[in-house]
C-alpha cells in the first residue's frame, strides 16, 4: 500500500509537470521532439541498467549532452530544431541497441515504476517543483517569442537564453518521464495532456494548468489501473491520456462559437 502511494506521488508529479511543459511544447510545435528526446535517453538508460544506477541520472546525462549538441548545431546551421533532434536521437538509439541487454529491453522502452525508493521520490518531487517554477517564469517570454521573436527581443527578452532554459526544463522532464513511460512514449506524456487541454481551455492559464491536471490525472489512473490489472503502468498512463483526449473532443464543440 505504501509503495502504491509512493508510486502515485512520483507519477502524479511527473505527469503534472510533463503536461505543464507540454503545453509550451505543443505551442511551439515541438511535442514530437519529446519523443525524440525520449529516444535520446536510451544510451543513458542502457548504461544505468547495466551498471545499476538510477535510470533518470543516465537519461539526464545523455539528454544534457544531446541538447547541448542540438543547440550548438542550431546556432551554427539554423536548421529547424526538430531536424537536428532527429539527427542526434537516431544516432543515440542506434548506439543504445548495440549495448542494451535483452532482459532490460522492456524496461528501457516502456518504463518501470514498481521499484521506486524514497530517495527517488524526494529527488523527483524536488525536480518537478524546480521545473514548474522555472517554466512558470519563462512561460510568458516563450509565448511572446512564439508570436514574434523580433517583438520579444524588442521587449528585452533574450530569445536564445530562454530557449536554452526551456530546453533544459524539457530535458529534466523527459529524464523524469522515462522512468514511468520508458524511452518509447515520452512524446505522448508531454503532447496528449496539452492537446486535451487545448481542446477545452479558453485562455492561457487554463491551457497550462489544465494540461498539468490532465497529465497528473492520467498518471494516477494509469498507476491505479496497473495495480489492479498487473499490466505495466507506462502503457496504461498513455491510454488514460488518450481517453481524456477523446473525451475532450466532445467537449470542444461546445466551446466553439
Amino acid at each position: 500500500m505504501i509503495q502504491l502511494v509512493i508510486v502515485l506521488l512520483v507519477c502524479g508529479f511527473i505527469g503534472g509537470i510533463a503536461g505543464y511543459i507540454g503545453s509550451l511544447m505543443v505551442t511551439k510545435r515541438m511535442s514530437l521532439m519529446g519523443g525524440s528526446l525520449g529516444h535520446l535517453t536510451l544510451p543513458g538508460i542502457t548504461l544505468a541498467l547495466i551498471y545499476g544506477f538510477d535510470v533518470s541520472i543516465g537519461a539526464l546525462l545523455f539528454l544534457g549532452m544531446g541538447i547541448l549538441l542540438i543547440w550548438l548545431f542550431e546556432l551554427r546551421t539554423k536548421l529547424p530544431l526538430e531536424a537536428l533532434t532527429a539527427v542526434v536521437f537516431a544516432s543515440s538509439v542506434a548506439v543504445a541497441f548495440l549495448f542494451l541487454p535483452e532482459e532490460h529491453t522492456y524496461q528501457a522502452l516502456i518504463g518501470d515504476v514498481s521499484q521506486v525508493s524514497p530517495v527517488v521520490v524526494i529527488v523527483s518531487v524536488i525536480s518537478c517543483l524546480l521545473v514548474f517554477m522555472v517554466t512558470r517564469n519563462i512561460f510568458p517570454k516563450i509565448i511572446l517569442s512564439t508570436i514574434s521573436e523580433d517583438l520579444a527581443q524588442s521587449e528585452g527578452v533574450s530569445v536564445k537564453k530562454y530557449n536554452l532554459i526551456y530546453l533544459g526544463c524539457i530535458a529534466l522532464t523527459v529524464a523524469l518521464g522515462v522512468r514511468i513511460v520508458g524511452g518509447l512514449m515520452t512524446a505522448a506524456l508531454v503532447a496528449i495532456p496539452a492537446s486535451t487541454s487545448r481542446n477545452v481551455s479558453r485562455n492561457l492559464k487554463q491551457y497550462a494548468y489544465l494540461g498539468m491536471l490532465f497529465g497528473m490525472l492520467s498518471c494516477v489512473i494509469g498507476v491505479l489501473a496497473s495495480s489492479v490489472t498487473g499490466v505495466s503502468a507506462g502503457p496504461l498512463i498513455i491510454i488514460s491520456n488518450a481517453v481524456f483526449f477523446l473525451a475532450s473532443l466532445a467537449f470542444k464543440k461546445s466551446y466553439i462559437s
Partner: peptide
C-alpha cells in the same frame, strides 16, 4: 516596436485571450 502584422504568428497559438 511593432513589426508588420504578417510577421506576427496568429494561427498556431494556444488559446490566448487579449487579456493574456
Amino acid at each position: 516596436y511593432l513589426p508588420p502584422q504578417e510577421f506576427l504568428e496568429r494561427r498556431h497559438l494556444p488559446p490566448l485571450s487579449i487579456k493574456d
